[in-house]
Design a protein around this nucleic acid. Structure first.
Lengths: 118, 118
DNA sequence: CCCTTTCGCAACCGATCGGTTGACAACGGT
DNA sequence: ACCGTTGTCAACCGATCGGTTGCGAAAGGG
């Protein structure tokens, strides 16, 4: 399963960058070319081109060909992969968290040192 | 803005590493100490200690104190933050994907004159 | 045909990352 | 009071990352 693991590697790493998350947010509104995507930022076009490539290799976006333009659009499938992974463990964590209260209630006889709550 | 963005930065970056995803998967089953977590891997204990620290600073796990042990357990909240972010744009992407057929039927056109506000 | 626009590729740079080893702090057991 | 257990901190190393600049390829428009 190096395959799906590697896809998750790239997908999570891709979304770890705020610029790339912003690109995704804007692409959710409408497809765009690299030039259009690059315009709002004060970095070079090549930098954005690299970002788009990272998103593409992560399977988060795809590109088509329209003359010399390469319109970029989101690819929802990989997002599903991520939410599926996250939700699986979030659910287990919450279930265990619910049971944690009962566990703590049973064994919290000598917990006199919790003076700080969240 | 930088606040929640930074939390997402760290959370996504943390889960970009397969070892850390594996740690999360195991912690979903039960809490564990750093030593217990490190045991299955062939890397040093310090390496796993660092991984746990990354997960902690990302808000994905928390630690309590039980004598010299520092049991680690999942913190579901940050997982919610991630799925919320992802789901938002995944949904928009899928909606736009449904409309893509109609868009393609009309043919590609530039969007420089979108002034309709009805 | 050229020429422009759009954009990818390659090389390079500083910063960060994942790993190592070594030292040591914190705590309990005896 | 010592020792073993548990885990963190600090320094270092090679690899990768996000950014830059420079060059050139691909496709239309005049």
């Amino acid at each position: 399963m190096d395959d799906s693991s590697n896809r998750l590697d790239r997908a999570f790493a891709a979304l770890a960058d705020p610029t790339r998350r912003d690109l995704v947010a804007r692409l959710a509104g409408s497809d765009a070319t690299v030039g259009e995507l690059a315009e709002p930022y004060d970095v070079s076009l090549q930098a954005i081109s690299k970002h788009v490539k990272v998103l593409e290799e992560a399977g988060l976006v795809t590109r088509s060909r329209d003359a010399q333009r390469r319109p970029v659009h989101l690819h929802a499938e990989t997002f599903d992969l991520m939410t599926t992974w996250i939700e699986r463990y979030r659910r287990e964590a919450e279930e265990r968290y619910s049971r944690l209260d009962a566990l703590l209630a049973r064994g919290a006889e000598d917990r006199t040192d919790l003076k700080e709550a969240s």
